[in-house]
């Protein structure tokens, strides 16, 4: 599964807190404003810049010094939640290849 950032969503910092804010088109799919844990913000930011899941896992593994499998599971879980909240769009790998 690959993820893409929903168009029209901006990651901003309000008083040093990472927050996702959708514009009015994206607002149809997600909450008006969403405060995030830092790791979620880093994941969303990387995906919004087009980074692959492998890259995101690799960076987080270096930072956390945890086994890759554990980090991958955590990142995947974060992506799924962000997808449920509407800030990420899940794209099947077949669609990406096309």
């Amino acid at each position: 599964m690959t993820y893409q950032a929903r168009p029209g969503v901006a990651l901003v910092s309000i008083c040093k807190e990472p927050v996702l804010i959708p514009n009015r088109e994206a607002y149809a799919y997600c909450k008006r404003i969403q405060k995030l844990p830092l790791i979620w913000a880093l994941v969303w930011d990387a995906i919004s810049m087009g980074k692959s899941m492998d890259h995101v896992v690799r960076v987080n593994q270096i930072l956390s010094k945890k086994p890759e499998a554990e980090v991958r599971e955590k990142i995947e879980s974060v992506c799924q939640k962000l997808c449920e909240m509407g800030y990420l769009i899940a794209v099947e790998d077949d669609e990406v290849k096309e």
Partner: peptide
Amino acid sequence: ANRDTDILKKTAALAT
């Protein structure tokens, strides 16, 4: 007007 992500970022900066 909630149209432009640059405006959203500027609004966040002003709110901060």
